[in-house]
Simulated scan of single mutants.
Amino acid sequence: MTPPLGDIAHLGHVQLLTSDPDASVASCTDCLGPTVGGQEGDTVHLRAYEHHGLVLTARDRPGRAAG
Rank of each mutant, 00 (worst) to 15 (best):
M1Q: 03
L17A: 05
I8R: 09
P62S: 03
S27W: 12
V14T: 10
C28A: 15
H52K: 03
V44P: 13
Q15G: 12
H45I: 10
R47W: 03
S27D: 14
G37S: 12
V55P: 08
L32G: 11
T57A: 10
G37V: 05
L54A: 13
H13C: 03
V36T: 07
D20E: 01
A9F: 02
D60Y: 00
A65C: 09
R61M: 00
L54G: 13
M1W: 04
G12S: 09
D20G: 00
A48G: 15
A58K: 02
D7M: 11
V55D: 14
A9P: 01
T2D: 15
P4H: 02
L11G: 13
D22Y: 01
G67F: 14
H13T: 04
V55L: 15
R59K: 08
T43H: 05
P62M: 00
T29L: 14
D7S: 15
D60A: 00
A9Y: 07
V44S: 14
V55F: 04
M1F: 02
H13P: 01
A58M: 08
M1N: 01
T43M: 11
L32C: 11
E50G: 03
A66C: 09
C31D: 15
V55S: 09
V14A: 15
Q39L: 11
H10V: 07
T2F: 11
G67S: 12
P34H: 07
T2M: 12
G38M: 07
A65Y: 14
G41A: 15
R64P: 07
G6D: 02
L54M: 14
G38P: 08
V55C: 10
D30M: 12
S24M: 03
D42K: 05
G67I: 05
P4N: 02
L11W: 10
L17V: 02
L11H: 09
L17M: 06
E50F: 03
R64N: 11
G6Y: 01
G12C: 06
R59D: 00
H13G: 03
P34M: 05
R64I: 13
R59E: 00
T2A: 14
G53K: 02
G38F: 04
G12Q: 08
L54C: 11
H51T: 08
D7G: 13
A66L: 06
G67M: 10
